[in-house]
Design a protein around this nucleic acid. Structure first.
Lengths: 86, 86
DNA sequence: TTGACACGTAACCATATGGTTACGTATTAT
DNA sequence: ATAATACGTAACCATATGGTTACGTGTCAA
């Protein structure tokens, strides 16, 4: 759960989750295009999201598709946020 | 809201919020006693929580009392977490 | 009134973080 | 076959972060 909190701490990463929420299964290049940073920067953020379990991936040829996984956010909500947000 | 996310990213700070959830209005010394770090370390974490609006304080003589303010967490929940946690 | 207590500030330090450029590899299209 | 495309790795860099020690200030109690 700590990895999830740390992953959510960065605005770029939250923006990536928003992008995937709007349109799931995007490639790295597509996600990169929306952000003011290099592909490598985006790659690093995506990896952090991936290790936190917030993003899953699937290779399709030379492309890598990224999918939002909201389950960790739900867990954070259920086991932590809800306690304070009542 | 970014300040709230960043404040929540650190386990020590989440632990401090838990401490205040259990018992509100604790002094710096009381909070320090529960943590494996110096008073100054705790002070810094509390300041970050304070600037994020998650903790409010009140001086009582030479003591400083700390109070949990869950409103920012509720805002994060309402405007962000709930979107993913459905 | 003087000593102990509770908190504050300043300076410093090691490591983590958020980015970059340069180069490499695998896949697709012409 | 070859060139463009899409992603990966390595090395590097500046700054942020999470901690420390040393010292200072205000308040309470004996």
């Amino acid at each position: 759960m700590d990895a999830v909190f740390r992953a959510l701490a960065d605005p770029t990463r939250r923006s990536l989750l928003d992008d995937l929420f709007k349109e799931d299964g995007q490639t790295l290049s597509a996600l990169e295009a929306r952000l003011p940073m290099t592909r490598i920067g985006v790659m690093k953020h995506l990896r952090i999201l991936e290790t936190a379990g917030l993003v899953t991936t699937k290779r399709r040829g030379r492309e890598k598709l990224h999918f939002l996984n909201a389950i960790p956010i739900r867990l954070v909500h259920d086991r932590w946020v809800s306690k304070y947000a009542e």
